[in-house]
Amino acid sequence: MIDKLYPNAAAALEGLRDGATVLISGFGDAGVPFALCLAVLETGARDLTVVANNAGFAGKGVAALIDAGRVARIICSFPRSEPDSPFVRQYKAGRIALELVPQGTLGERMRAAGAGIAGFYTRVSAGTRLAEGKEMREIDGHQHVLERPLRGDFALVRAEKADRWGNLVFRKAARNFGPVMATAADITVVEVAECVENGALDPEAVVTPSVYVDRIVVTGPGGPR
C-alpha cells in the first residue's frame, strides 16, 4: 500500500546531506514551504545549493537558511528584494555564490530536467551578460542560448491539498514554481494544509499528478508564516 505521509517535516527530510541541491518553491511569501525550510535548519545540512526565485523575505524561509550560513550557492532570478537581507550581507561578505538566471529560463530549466530534455535553445538573454560562456546558435535568424536542465536532490514544495497518493492542488498564485519543481528532483517533499482520502480531489482539477510526489507532510492551513 502506498504511504507517502510522514509524521513531521524533519522525518520527511531523511537523506538530505551536506552539499545537496534543494529546489524551494515560492514567489514572495506565496507558496513557500516554511515548515520544511525550518526543518532543513534542524537537519544541520550545510553547503547547500538552493534553487528558488528569491532569496527569502523577513528572515524566513530561504532567508533563514542563508542567515544560518547553510547555503553555499543560490540559483535564482531576483535575490535582492530587501536592502539588508541575509542574502545581501552574505553576498557582500563573499560567503555565498550567486548564479543569476532569467525567471522564465529558471523555470524552464527545471521543466526540462523533469521532462527528460537535455537542453533547449532560447532567445532569452542572447546578447547579454547572462549568456556569457554559454553555447550560442543562430536559428531562424536569431541568436539563441543553449540552456541546460536544472535538477535537485530534493524539491521542497508548498501545496494546498494532497490525497494519499500525492495528487496535489494549489491555492491561487501560491502555485508558482511548485508544480515544476515537483517534477525535477530525486525526492519531492510536499507540505500541505490538508491530506484527503483518494477520490476526494476532483481528478480534473489535479495540478500535480501523484507520480511526482514522494513524501507528504501536513502542516495545517497557511503554515508557519
Binding site: S77, F78, P79, R80, S81, P83, F87, V88, Y91, K92, L98, L100, V101, P102, Q103, G104, T105, R123, V124, S125, A126, T128, L130
Partner: peptide, 15 residues
C-alpha cells in the same frame, strides 16, 4: 553596493 537581480525582464523583453 548591491547584488544584481534580473527577474523576468529578459523573458518579457524577448517574448
Amino acid at each position: 553596493s548591491m547584488p544584481p537581480g534580473v527577474g523576468g525582464a529578459m523573458d518579457l523583453a524577448v517574448g
